[in-house]
Design a protein around this nucleic acid. Structure first.
Lengths: 254, 254
DNA sequence: GAGGTAGATTCATCTGATGATTGGCTCTAC
DNA sequence: GTAGAGCCAATCATCAGATGAATCTACCTC
């Protein structure tokens, strides 16, 4: 076992046995290094590793403190490594995301009565994306027909990157608001990690089907309708269907 | 941004843009430190952090290499922080675990035809726990001298720690085999992280209901039956019911 | 050709020193 | 008495150099 491992294990052990609680300050580097029997350099490597994991937080001139240990903090580094997965396991990652988001939708619907604030944010997110879509020059004036996927070759002008960014932002806000309504911070943190910005960017870049953005908007609206109606079954099914579509694109691409 | 962050970002960027692939060797510390414009100490802090995250692996006398970046490696540190959650979010953690294990059971059933090997291991795990349970009443005079030294002062059904450990081991093996049969490594790694040894220990210690072990065995058997029969619906429902029972204990305790 | 040995390479760790930032104390002015 | 400015000590951040330990490589011996 390396010195650094000794440091990591030592500090986590102190947290587990209660001698260090969230918010507590760690001993100064010199003392802690002496306690653990390592040099200051090795101590810093271990502390830094725990810092990356979100367990402790070092502040220059002040000290090193145990974080709140909230799920959102501790799960965050998972987002980093999920991005490193690259295309190899993109389908597997998204499958798990779909499973969890489906449950998010169900829980959000069950909690609808107690989650008015979060659901109001979801409503706002959909209003924002609807406004973006309305302001955008449409390719076809007609209604968004399901059969439009046959017309993939139509001469669509390059979509405005700013619009694309706004839609992505609203999408993130929508799903995040639902996760909050589900009232399970571990679930929310995991979904956040699995559906990070980079991953979503990759997804949306890959989906070039005409009318895809409008279709997403419709599906979001349907999901929110079910959630607000307190109908978990419909919310689950609609969320699952929504994310399965994305998954189909991943599967088709390879 | 700290020097260490520069190191972490720099190395992850090299992996993302393809200049470093899984299995590749990083430049020697001195060179890499010069490239990133940091001292060797800061470089080591960053590399060590990535090492804890399972992204790189340093070998003394050899070099530092990018790992395979497999989900099981990268998700592993999540298990550490899940243990740090302690009792505060135990219920939330287990709820997510139940959601994922339910899907594991469903996928395993769907894949039953192609997962004979993994399901054979699940069968073995249940046979092991069945044998432990069958031998338990006869512990005192039995030929199993391995762990049966704690016979002093026994009068009632004081559970043998060795048996408890064996049952826990079989439980882990059973769920792990099902996860493998589900054929989604990301899903399997997450379940593994959420249901770590320590968490399971806590659970099993809390469940003191008479006959709980036998009941668990029966439920496991029912789950495996459904999986082997290729019946995802039954497998899902039975797994969900199984883990909901555990969850009820958590909810009752606080 | 097989096996072992010596050297070079690389990471692991320690020691010491300096800079940057923060928090708290003191002193002063009103 | 209180509010503000300025000084000082504590603490983390970073660097530099040196030594030890493990591994790999090349060469040498038989």
């Amino acid at each position: 076992m390396s010195r650094t491992d000794r440091v990591v294990d030592g500090i986590t052990a102190m947290i587990l046995d209660g001698s260090l609680a969230p918010g507590d300050r760690l001993p100064v580097e010199k003392d802690l290094a002496a306690t653990l029997g390592v040099s200051r350099g090795s101590l810093r490597e271990g502390v830094r590793a725990l810092s990356v994991l979100g367990v402790v937080d070092s502040r220059q001139g002040d000290g090193t403190y145990v974080t709140s240990l909230d799920p959102s903090l501790l799960v965050a580094p998972l987002g980093l490594v999920v991005e490193l997965q690259g295309a190899g396991h993109a389908l597997h990652v998204h499958t798990v995301r779909r499973m969890l988001e489906t449950e998010v939708a169900g829980l959000a619907a069950s909690n609808a009565a107690r989650a008015g604030e979060a659901l109001a944010r979801a409503r706002e997110a959909l209003d924002d994306s609807a406004a973006t879509l309305a302001a955008r020059p449409l390719l076809t004036g007609g209604p968004r027909a399901r059969g439009s996927r046959a017309a993939e070759g139509e001469g669509a002008a390059a979509p405005d990157p700013a619009d694309h960014e706004a839609l992505l932002e609203a999408d993130i806000a929508f799903h995040r608001a639902l996760a909050e309504a589900a009232a399970n911070p571990v679930l929310g943190a995991l979904v956040e990690a699995l559906a990070g910005r980079t991953a979503r960017h990759r997804l949306w870049r890959g989906i070039t089907q005409a009318g895809a953005d409008e279709r997403t908007q419709d599906e979001h609206e349907a999901i929110l309708d079910a959630v607000l109606a307190g109908d978990p079954e419909r919310a689950r099914v609609r969320m699952a269907a929504h994310l399965l579509e994305v998954e189909d694109f991943l599967r088709a691409q390879g």
